[in-house]
Design a protein around this nucleic acid. Structure first.
Lengths: 213, 213
DNA sequence: CGGATACGGAAGCTCCGTATCCGCTTGTGC
DNA sequence: GCACAAGCGGATACGGAGCTTCCGTATCCG
């Protein structure tokens, strides 16, 4: 008989159910409003009280930590799928668009996958082996401009993410236009097509400026 | 003798001096830290007390308002100078780079030139007559992709601005790389050169993700 | 059915930025 | 020079927001 026996009974069924609901709610609230959203928001979205959230997780950081793995796995899956595309250029651009889209649809993505000191290392360890070949292959095929790196993928998703965050209420598809422009900019020599969707109306584009960061 | 005579004496010399110092300080503090910076920060940078700031300006909005004109004039000057460039493509790209640079060096630019309901209209009224011809001319010369608009200039500066804001401490010139990529993306068919400066190291690029917005 | 487990959400705490107030200093006109 | 209006400084009041705790109540499960 260990006096420290950590758990005698299995957790109650409703408790486990709530844990899942909270995590689901956290993912969708942080995706929509960014990690600046409060745990009260998460609790409301989950249909539970705040007290319940704090029973499951010591604090907000713990909630964010719990989301790390699934987000990284999503990105890894994108890279793995792209690897199956035979055309090197299409494979790379498909992956890049996928990352951009993931970020555009998830305002908190950046903050969730980058927490604390070691997440950069962990991110590299888990993604680089699959992503680097995509880049090398596209480069060798003359489909990617010289000096383009995996880091650039991060930054490009940041850029389009900024657009998506600030245009979502005005036109949720507006970011596609800039994703396209940016992806064209990765080609060694672009055969650029017409940008789409159409440009935002001026007043919307201008309004966007007023709340960046 | 008007009983309401609003001002008997000219303002004291030191008072006027302080007004200028506050406005200068405000411009540089908001440029560096964004409009989220406090008036206390501005007062400290100006070397005056907070009380003095509130004596000159009823509130923070008034300070921001006072910066509007000079910022817009800067942008107008960029456009006017670009108009003198004979090569249509170079004129447009020079202007675009200028706007991007202005924003990259001034974190508060967007918020300062876009305040309240009418600033979008005012902005259009003051800039469009000079900017639109730059675009039309570049388009006619086959130097700009179809459907590119003045609004796109706003959004592209927003995108690169997001990069600049988040990389400033790590490498203040990093944004140039993405400005180049984005500007290449505006061409109907790009003859892209090597991107410069070099890519950020991975850990820096990853860290940047953690604090976007 | 009864005790253990979990829930809900009001209330307290802390932090932060805005704005005020008033005793002290400085410039200016006589 | 002197007197007083004009201007200054900065401690502090104020308000709001988010995080977290606490405990009376509800729910589950043996």
């Amino acid at each position: 008989m260990n006096i420290d026996a950590p758990r005698v009974h299995a957790p109650r069924a409703d408790a486990e159910r709530n844990r899942v609901r909270i995590l689901d709610a956290a993912a969708s609230v942080f995706a929509e409003h960014g990690v600046g959203a409060t745990l009260n928001d998460v609790a409301r979205a989950a249909g539970v009280g705040i007290g319940t959230v704090y029973r499951k997780f010591p604090d907000k950081d713990a909630v964010l930590d719990a989301l790390f793995d699934v987000k990284v796995d999503n990105l890894l899956r994108l890279a793995t799928e792209a690897t199956r595309e035979p055309d090197a250029g299409a494979a790379f651009r498909g992956f890049l668009l996928g990352v951009i889209e993931a970020r555009a649809n998830d305002r908190g993505l950046g903050a969730v996958i980058m927490r604390g000191e070691n997440s950069a290392a962990e991110l590299g360890r888990r993604l680089a082996p699959t992503v680097e070949p995509l880049i090398t292959r596209a480069r060798a095929a003359g489909e990617l401009r010289e000096g383009f790196t995996g880091q650039d993928v991060c930054i490009l998703s940041l850029m389009v993410g900024a657009v998506a965050d600030n245009t979502r209420d005005v036109d949720p598809r507006a970011w596609h236009r800039y994703a396209q422009l940016v992806i064209d900019g990765t080609r060694p020599s672009a055969a650029a097509e017409r940008l789409s969707p159409d440009s935002l109306p001026f007043r919307d584009a201008a309004a966007v400026l007023g709340r960046a960061r």
